[in-house]
């Protein structure tokens, strides 16, 4: 096995380790919401006065959701055996 394949595999393994627990724990959801708390004002600032505070919050959540789905698909691409 070449060194590169080794690195490749180690990467894939580490990656799968960190994402193995797909069912979100309460703590993870809390952390994501905290992140959202930081993101939402940025969205609000960027869009100007066109949207309300709650809309900014949900847009930021949607953005995080999209990002999460993207990460999920990347995981599927590298570890398709798990699906």
């Amino acid at each position: 096995m070449s060194r590169f394949q080794y690195i490749w595999q180690t990467f894939a393994e580490t990656f799968s380790e960190s994402t193995r627990r797909r069912h979100f724990s309460t703590l993870q959801i809390l952390l994501v919401m905290c992140l959202n708390l930081a993101l939402a004002p940025a969205v609000l600032a960027a869009t100007g006065a066109q949207i309300s505070r709650s809309q900014a919050y949900s847009i930021a959540a949607l953005g995080l959701l999209t990002f999460g789905l993207g990460a999920y698909l990347v995981f599927v691409i590298f570890q398709p055996e798990k699906f």
Binding site: T66, L69, G70, L73, V74, V76, I77, P80, E81, F83
Partner: peptide, 17 residues
Amino acid sequence: EIALTVLLAVLSLVFLI
């Protein structure tokens, strides 16, 4: 099936982007 799953995931990811 695994290779096809990869292809489908890539297409999905491309369209998601």
